[in-house]
Design a protein around this nucleic acid. Sequence first.
DNA 1: TTGTAAGCGTTATCAT
DNA 2: ATGATAACGCTTACAA
Lengths: 349, 349
Amino acid sequence: MSKKSADGGDAAGRPTMKDVARRAGVGLSTVSRVVSGKAGVSAAKHAAVQGAIDALGYSRNDFAHTLRTGSARTIGLAVTKISDPFYAQLIEAVESRAQERDMLVLVSSAGDDAVESERMLRRMLSRRLDGYIVVAHEEVDLAFLDAERAAGTPIVFVDRPPRGLRADLVLVDNERGAADAVAHLARAGHRSIACVAHISGRYTSERRQVGFRRGAREAGLADRPELIVAVEDEVQTCVEALRELFALPDPPTALFTTNSRTTKAVIAALRLMGVERALVGFDDFELAGLLSPPVTTIAQDPRTLGEAAANLLFERVAGLAGPERHIVLGTRLIARGSGERAPHDVTGL
Amino acid sequence: MSKKSADGGDAAGRPTMKDVARRAGVGLSTVSRVVSGKAGVSAAKHAAVQGAIDALGYSRNDFAHTLRTGSARTIGLAVTKISDPFYAQLIEAVESRAQERDMLVLVSSAGDDAVESERMLRRMLSRRLDGYIVVAHEEVDLAFLDAERAAGTPIVFVDRPPRGLRADLVLVDNERGAADAVAHLARAGHRSIACVAHISGRYTSERRQVGFRRGAREAGLADRPELIVAVEDEVQTCVEALRELFALPDPPTALFTTNSRTTKAVIAALRLMGVERALVGFDDFELAGLLSPPVTTIAQDPRTLGEAAANLLFERVAGLAGPERHIVLGTRLIARGSGERAPHDVTGL
DNA sequence: TTGTAAGCGTTATCAT
DNA sequence: ATGATAACGCTTACAA
């Protein structure tokens, strides 16, 4: 009951190695050896220790263990928004890889605020985990991470390159994916294609816009900057943006959206306007195939992304040296009909 | 460079409090006081210490801190499937609440396997975190958690009651929600309503089936057990189940599904069969309003659930004693048209 | 106000 | 093979 009674235990009353040792009638180091699964313990003592452990319900204090050994058996994972299905899947993939190695994952949502995002990262870093996977906020100068990396902690960035830092990075070929989308639409006969670009996450948005223009060029379409509009992934903004696009001379018969949040917002906007248009969206999403018309997407698999990042991180944790690696994964076009719809099929407006 | 050089630092070369103390020309405890923001340090020494901290890039070793103080400033969160949008939102809510308290969250996916699930939990427990929020696998006897609770660690269960344990619990009124769904359909004139129940997560499925029957009774409908079928949330199984339902004498003109995964699978199945039916699904989901017809749902807000659980947990962490609490949250029917569709409107088949 | 010293529960070193 | 004993980096009496 009291804080320091003869029956041992830590502050919360949990048994410690000392208690186990006393009960088993052995020395502290023998218990440590058994608990850590090290060799060099006689069968008899081993049994005695194991018996005491079971009887006492002992389990090792991981903090003391970590303090001593330096390995937390934990990695940190920072994303911008946990509930975004894309990141949720990425998290799941990383967590599953970590589990295989008997490690745990500390996740955190950095959110949209740059200042908050930096505070988050610093908070995670002070935990001295074995490594970090981070989807960084683009406005935060991450140079402060260099101290951590200098201490030997590996950090792998995902989805976009870190600002102010050269580091391991895993992302998809945004340009190629976007160009593929345009090619798909052009193949269906579209000659006037608009790009509705998300405003958050500048890097991916810009890469995909570049890809969009490259795709247009490759398809022999005129370069028409007025066909590229930026929106917040919010329905009303999209309605306005679309109205302007449709009011253009030679208005777009097809749309390319640069991420799934925007794709969904654009679909909602089109519904609201009572319009139907051919549409290809970057990022696949659940139910894309159940909408009418089903939505063609450029899929980048968040699981694959997460696995690649985790694999690289664990290699680094295991001691892999060498220069930073940039892993670029391909995208996959999932044709579902919304893009094949020929220009003259288009109804409405 | 070497492991134990005169310039100090820990094994990884990071400066420790000792280094800061030496550089600032003060004692160890003064540094500790400054770092912990404690009062009783002269302005001069405070400045000296702060200067040394900045110069050295010192940050506190949280493991040592935790070992000493006993508080990890971290909670554990175990769910069955991180990528399920429902849990993803719950996680986000919990993480956000934790952030407010300067705490971090260790998440883990227990998965569908009972054995793996128990191992997961034990692994988290060995971390001695400040508290845990868990969506428990129903087949795991959680009596082993009692030792942890005896040590004073609060555990709050979410979504379903733990097996073999009396504990804090946060969930929704599953019965009432399901009954509401039936009432809504009955109000639209449906007299033959089927319940497509998910097979995973027995507890919620059963409560919602009970609610379904209660709703039918309250609406003055006959109790027809053959109208309740259990499915895996997989399209083909749903197709078969639906075929059987529709082959019944007096076949259902409306469907109630017991969770979102099942709702989606049933929608896909209906599409595949070229059939349309009035439908109300338990659990709201993204794009429910953009499907045709839009899907009416019984929404249980995962964020609210997560917040309630987090609030309760943090109260416990702060020392709240007293008997276990059961918090039951209400559900909300979101009418989107799919339920109002009158029986005679039904097309197809 | 400040510093010294004794732990926190482990693991690692070194005798035995 | 085994057991003292000294760290690990920090907090906290207790002295000064």
